[in-house]
């Protein structure tokens, strides 16, 4: 039987790989799916580390909701047309070049962390947090919730600015 640490390691490696795929993919749809996959691996990892609530949020929002939004957005825009295979390959190579520093950096960071590894005071949840979720949400983290509300408002205005007029103009074009 694999230990918890080994499973986590495998999950994290998978997560990084799918994230890389999401970045490298030339097709927006595949990229979206890869992103959802990343979230799924992450959610599993979080669950295994003993935070089921966080895992549920990660799964439902990142893997579920956002993917749905992305896919519906992609379906609204026109396909790129018939791009030739050589072009795609060149594009991919170009992208590959751009992101070469990333794995190197990750490797360096990993080595550094391994060299400096420390026994983190990693304690289970129950006795550190005697508060319930609702208490945490509405009492301890009340200001953050307010901030979240502001964030949502900002998002609404962002959508209004960036998309609403665009849609209207699109309609005008049809007329």
């Amino acid at each position: 039987m694999l230990s918890l640490g080994t499973i986590l390691l495998i999950l994290l490696v998978l997560m990084v790989l799918s994230a890389l795929w999401a970045v490298m993919a030339t097709d927006l749809l595949r990229s979206t799916i890869a992103l959802a996959l990343t979230s799924v691996f992450l959610a599993i990892a979080i669950y295994m580390m003993g935070a089921p609530l966080a895992a549920v949020f990660e799964l439902s929002v990142c893997a579920g909701l956002i993917t749905v939004v992305f896919i519906s957005a992609i379906s609204m825009i026109k396909p790129e047309g018939n791009t030739r295979k050589e072009d795609l390959a060149r594009k991919r190579r170009k992208r590959l070049k751009k992101y070469i520093p990333l794995p190197i950096l990750l490797a360096v960071a990993g080595v550094l962390l391994w060299l400096n590894r420390v026994d983190l005071p990693f304690t289970p949840d129950a006795d550190v947090f005697p508060l319930t979720l609702s208490e945490i949400m509405w009492d301890v983290r009340r200001v953050d919730i307010a901030g979240q509300a502001v964030m949502i408002l900002v998002g609404v205005f962002g959508i209004v600015v960036l998309f609403k007029e665009f849609v209207r103009r699109g309609k005008g074009g049809e007329e």
Binding site: D144, Q148, G155, G158
Partner: peptide
């Protein structure tokens, strides 16, 4: 006003997000 790192983070993001939109306002 924040006296908690996470609260700070939330408001940093609020400022950042509203700044993105303010920059792109004219599209």
């Amino acid at each position: 006003l924040s006296n908690d790192l996470f609260t700070l983070y939330v408001f940093l993001e609020v400022v950042a997000a509203s700044s993105f939109i303010l920059i792109a306002l004219e599209r």
